[in-house]
């Protein structure tokens, strides 16, 4: 038994306290950052909110000349582009996850999985520049004229596809967003599919079910919470995505029924106008838009995390 040097032991205790304190304060700092974001946004948005009150979120007007601002246009654009993105990306992401877990030859599983994850790593500005110079012209020349000529004449849905083919606009922004959130939805859905016990699936196959029937009746019910969590995480991304949308949406503060018309979203309005905003009310209105975006995405992401957490706990208790 070695004799412990009391001074050494005391020093160790000091280091221990310092280290413990450092890790604790780093953890608390994370909370402070989120609190700081909320407080600074409320502080910055206050002049606009005090001036316009509740009308800020119900009016479509956005006029820097007369200093009148309403967030309805950007809110509308954000909701519509995200809806288009989810309508396209959810089935596709589900398909990719299905392919990776059930159909893919083992040899290709990793390369394709990595390729999908790399798509998630591509920065949003690259999607923007690609969307503007490659996707938009293709849509303008080939897809939109067809939509206008064939779908635009139908009663009801036709209203969504009227007007000249700009190339850029709400629809293009939605498609670019769909490509961006696709890898997130595919990756989470795949991970959730992987948590389904093999025995459950094999029982299904043993009863003579086809692959699709096993997926739809065994895998999906078992992983429902996780899938919804993954979709909402993707939705959180789509709602807050800035640069890609800024390139292709056309930046017009108005609400049109046609998906082919240019529009604006909360984040693209901020990105476009913030550095050029003169006057306190203008800047404050843009920060108020940021506050709205923060509240919306916080609610969506928090709900998604809560769902995924619930799934994790259930998985842990089952194991």
């Amino acid at each position: 038994m070695a004799i412990i040097d009391p001074r050494h032991a005391a020093r160790q205790l000091v280091y221990e306290r310092i280290f413990r304190w450092a890790t604790l304060s780093a953890a608390v700092l994370v909370l402070l950052i989120l609190g700081g974001v909320a407080i600074s946004l409320i502080y910055g948005a206050w002049p606009a909110l005090a001036h316009f009150g509740f009308r800020f979120v119900t009016r479509e007007i956005w006029n820097p000349v007369t200093d009148q601002y309403g967030a309805l246009g950007p809110i509308f654009g954000t909701v519509v582009t995200s809806t288009i993105a989810m309508l396209l990306a959810v089935p596709a992401g589900f398909g990719i996850a299905l392919f990776l877990t059930e159909l893919c030859p083992p040899l290709l599983k990793r390369p394709i999985g990595v390729a999908v994850e790399l798509l998630a790593a591509v920065p949003s500005i690259i999607f923007g520049i690609w969307g503007l110079f490659v996707l938009a012209p293709v849509l303008q020349r080939h897809v939109q004229p067809w939509l206008i000529a064939h779908v635009g004449v139908l009663p009801g849905v036709g209203a969504l596809f009227k007007g000249p083919p700009f190339g850029i606009g709400i629809l293009t922004a939605g498609i670019v967003l769909a490509i961006m959130v696709l890898p997130f939805i595919a990756a989470t859905t795949r991970d959730v599919f992987d948590t389904v016990p093999a025995m459950l699936k094999e029982s299904g196959y043993g009863l003579g079910a086809t692959t699709w029937e096993v997926i739809w009746n065994v895998v999906v019910p078992h992983s429902r919470v996780g899938i919804v969590g993954g979709i909402m995480l993707g939705l959180g991304r789509a709602l807050g995505e800035t640069m890609a949308v800024t390139f292709v949406i056309g930046n017009a503060h108005r609400i049109s029924a046609s998906l082919l018309a240019p529009g604006t979203t909360i984040s693209s309005a901020i990105a476009n106008e913030f550095t050029e905003a003169v006057g306190d009310l203008y800047t404050s209105s843009l920060i108020a838009l940021g506050l709205l975006l923060f509240l919306i995405t916080f609610a969506v992401i928090a709900a998604a995390q809560a769902m995924l957490l619930r799934l994790e706990r259930r998985g842990a208790s089952a194991a």
Binding site: V37, S40, Y43, R237, T242, I270, F294, T297, I301, Q305
Partner: peptide, 21 residues
């Protein structure tokens, strides 16, 4: 939980935050 929220929070919000402070 908060960290997971920050992980997916829109980056433009972070820009506004640093701008303000």
């Amino acid at each position: 939980f908060i960290n997971d929220v920050l992980l997916s929070a829109p980056s433009i919000i972070v820009g506004l935050f640093i701008y303000e402070i």
